[in-house]
């Protein structure tokens, strides 16, 4: 994953997924760039996606424009990590 983002960003994003989706630590630790998210994880409905985005904004101190959110961003863990890392500049 280091090609996509720093280990710190990766760890913090996994912690957000764990906390918001209530997934156990082992499950989240096993995610790789290709792990499917939206549509594959039952906890991840539209309300949970909104919660996830708000938590990413709060914990990383960034603002996410809702127009930037499309299906692709939430498709895989790698996409979400790249999206978050890109907004950290």
């Amino acid at each position: 994953m280091s090609a996509l983002a720093s280990d710190d960003t990766d760890d913090r994003l996994r912690a957000i997924l764990r906390d918001v989706l209530g997934l156990n630590a082992d499950t989240v630790a096993s995610f790789d760039a290709d792990t499917a998210l939206f549509g594959a994880i039952p906890e991840l409905d539209s309300m949970a996606v909104a919660g996830l985005l708000t938590e990413i904004e709060d914990r990383f101190g960034i603002v996410i424009d809702d127009d930037d959110i499309d299906g692709e961003v939430l498709e895989t863990y790698g996409n979400l990590l790249a999206f978050t890392a890109a907004r950290l500049g």
Binding site: S46, V49, A50, G51, L53, T54, D66, D70, G71
Partner: peptide, 13 residues
């Protein structure tokens, strides 16, 4: 905003 955001996302789906 949180509720509206969820509505936008589900609408997009």
């Amino acid at each position: 905003r949180h509720l509206l955001r969820a509505r936008v996302i589900s609408g997009r789906e």
